[in-house]
């Protein structure tokens, strides 16, 4: 399964026409203890780099931007009661939403893992 990243530190894992979205380990670490995740509503239509939700830690509040355009199919509502799961496993169990991708060509606007790692070194 291929995984792509945004400059705002979101990731998307591609499985056919489904994209699972979350924030990167780096972002979770930078935020510190995560206390709240605002998930999108199932059925919501989002645009690439449009607001998908938000995330709050003790230190800061940030918007989450969608790496791809699409329709929200499922959300990880376990995060409603245990947002700390994002700290424990940002790039896996801490996923936020599953999207039905509407335009696969948008992936060219994203970074591969290797490109993202290089990008992090420039920050």
């Amino acid at each position: 399964m291929s995984m792509y990243f945004t400059k705002e530190h979101e990731w998307v894992k591609i499985d056919g026409t489904t994209g699972t979205v979350g924030i990167s380990d780096h972002a979770a670490h930078e935020l510190g203890d995560i206390t709240f995740v605002e998930l999108p509503k199932t059925g919501a239509v989002v645009k690439q780099f449009g607001i998908l939700g938000s995330i709050e830690s003790v230190k800061a509040a940030s918007d989450i931007f969608s790496p791809v355009s699409g329709t929200v199919v499922t959300v990880n509502d376990i995060l409603d009661s245990t947002p700390e799961r994002v700290n424990e496993s940002a790039e896996n169990a801490g996923w936020m939403a599953e999207l039905k991708i509407s335009d696969a060509s948008e992936l060219k606007n994203l970074m591969t893992r290797e490109q993202y790692d290089d990008y992090l070194k420039t920050l």
Binding site: T35, F36, E38, E56, A61, P83
Partner: peptide
């Protein structure tokens, strides 16, 4: 607050 959101 009636949720886990933080006022700032």
């Amino acid at each position: 607050v009636n949720s886990r959101r933080s006022p700032r």
